[in-house]
């Protein structure tokens, strides 16, 4: 038993009852020969892309059925002989019926979001990165507050003569410094008392490094 899709066109000029009868004849043939109808789809009367037998419209009906291959010959013969059938086509259906007829119908017209998404995600992650670092620093500020206060003081002193541009860089550098001390503080959680001392030492060392780096930044 294989899944087939049989579509056929019935002459639309005949009465509705006749059309219905012709459509039903096909489903009856399928059922009578041990087939099982999975889905029935009526496209109804629609315009043909080109005239068939001098007719410009046709009534389309489709049966998705699970049948033995012997049924196909019977259907073919029936529709060739029946004058009301204008065209018919049976194909082996190799897709998930749900995706063609069901609610999960596939749509190729989904807008392209790949290009639009990338900058958003980057900015989001960037924002996330920025956001927690001060909060973490604030949470562990008890231990790091001393170092933070000290940091602010020496930087202007060193760059006091160099005025505005230097102070801006100094202000910017206050932000990453607590992050580093906080990260190091995390690793040194167990020895709380020692932490303060070492953190300050390290912070001072980092300040010196930062101070060394400042002139380079300005040159650039």
């Amino acid at each position: 038993m294989i899944l087939y899709e049989t579509t056929f066109i019935v002459n639309p000029q005949s009465d509705d009852a006749v059309i219905e009868e012709k459509v039903k004849a096909i489903s009856d043939l399928i059922l009578a020969n041990g087939g099982k109808i999975v889905h029935e789809d009526r496209m109804g009367t629609r315009r043909l892309a080109y005239p068939i037998n001098k007719l410009h419209q046709g009534y389309y009906a489709t049966f998705l059925h699970e049948s033995d291959k012997s049924v196909l010959a019977i259907l073919d013969r029936h529709m060739k002989l029946g004058e009301e059938y204008m065209r018919h086509l049976t194909i082996r259906f190799e897709a998930d019926p749900e995706r063609v007829y069901g609610d999960k119908k596939e749509d190729y017209r989904i807008p392209r979001k790949i290009m639009a998404k990338k900058p958003d995600s980057q900015s989001e992650t960037a924002e996330i990165k920025i956001a927690p670092s001060p909060s973490e620093a604030a949470a562990e500020a008890d231990s790091a507050s001393e170092t933070a206060e000290i940091k602010i003081v020496p930087a202007p002193e060193e760059t006091a003569a160099e005025a505005d541009s230097a102070s801006e860089t100094a202000e910017i550098k206050i932000v990453p410094a607590p992050e580093e001390t906080a990260a190091e503080a995390d690793s040194q959680n167990e020895t709380a008392e020692i932490k303060i001392v070492s953190a300050t030492d390290e912070a001072e060392a980092e300040e010196k490094k930062a101070a060394d780096e400042k002139p380079e930044d300005e040159e650039l």
Partner: peptide
């Protein structure tokens, strides 16, 4: 150019879908 069908993970193209 990216294949539209690959992009939307469509593997069966229905011949009755005239719009497509």
């Amino acid at each position: 150019k990216i294949c539209r069908f690959c992009e939307n993970k469509i593997y069966y193209l229905d011949y009755k879908d005239e719009k497509m």
